[in-house]
Simulated assay, not measured.
Amino acid sequence: MKTLGFLVDEMLFQDFEKLHDFSKIFGLQPKDVKVFSFMEVKKKLPTLQQNQINNKDFNWKGEIQNQNAKEFLERDFDVLVGLYDGKHRFLDLLVSESKAKFKVGFKDADPRLYDLLIAVSTNDLPTFTAELKKYITLLNKV
């Protein structure tokens, strides 16, 4: 594995620095770990965060109107992790559009979208990290 991407629901998880720590765990360069987040409603305050999408960035046909999101989805990640609970119409669409080689989700995610579902809660990042490392090693992705 040389590149790792995360699609994150900001309602669930905001500490993106913990996700960048995955670079140390998997022996990657920090620049090779990318995080893209979804927020249901755009904040009124200006933000410098460019790797973010919200429900207004989708048209009525479900097409993505956010250039940064399109670029993220075009990246050929070795592993993409969907960090959100259950089925989520916007994040599920992003996962389905991703060019990632291997997609990993959490227990209640749509199994048609992922190559691997790990049966832990999204709140339990340490257990998820250990399980991900175990399966990525077993599947010869590292």
Results as ranks from 00 to 15, higher is better:
L4W: 08
L4Y: 09
G5Q: 12
F6I: 09
E10L: 09
M11A: 12
M11S: 07
M11K: 15
L12W: 04
L12S: 04
D15H: 10
E17L: 13
E17D: 08
L19R: 00
F22Y: 08
S23A: 14
K24S: 13
K24H: 13
K24Q: 13
I25P: 12
G27Q: 10
Q29M: 13
Q29A: 04
Q29L: 06
P30I: 15
V33S: 05
K34S: 05
K34C: 05
V35Q: 12
F36C: 04
S37V: 14
F38L: 12
E40C: 14
E40S: 06
K43Y: 09
K43L: 10
K43H: 11
P46F: 06
T47E: 12
L48F: 11
L48Q: 09
Q49P: 02
Q49T: 14
N51V: 02
Q52E: 15
N54E: 06
N55C: 04
K56L: 07
D57H: 04
F58N: 04
N59Q: 10
W60R: 15
W60F: 14
W60K: 02
K61L: 04
K61V: 03
G62T: 10
G62Y: 14
G62Q: 10
Q65H: 12
Q65D: 03
N66K: 09
Q67D: 10
E71K: 01
F72P: 02
L73D: 02
E74Q: 07
R75A: 04
F77I: 12
D78K: 04
D78W: 08
D78H: 11
V79I: 12
V81C: 03
L83T: 00
D85G: 03
K87D: 10
H88A: 00
H88S: 00
F90L: 00
S96R: 06
K99I: 01
K101L: 05
F102D: 07
K103N: 10
K103P: 09
V104A: 02
G105S: 11
K107F: 13
D108I: 08
A109C: 03
A109L: 14
D110P: 11
P111M: 01
R112H: 14
L113A: 06
Y114G: 02
I118P: 13
A119K: 14
A119D: 11
A119C: 03
S121F: 00
D124F: 00
D124Q: 01
L125Y: 00
L125M: 00
T127K: 04
T129L: 04
A130I: 09
E131F: 01
L132M: 07
L132D: 05
K133T: 12
K133C: 11
K133P: 10
K134W: 05
Y135N: 14
T137Q: 11
L139C: 07
L139I: 07
V142P: 07
V142W: 06
V142C: 05
V142Y: 05
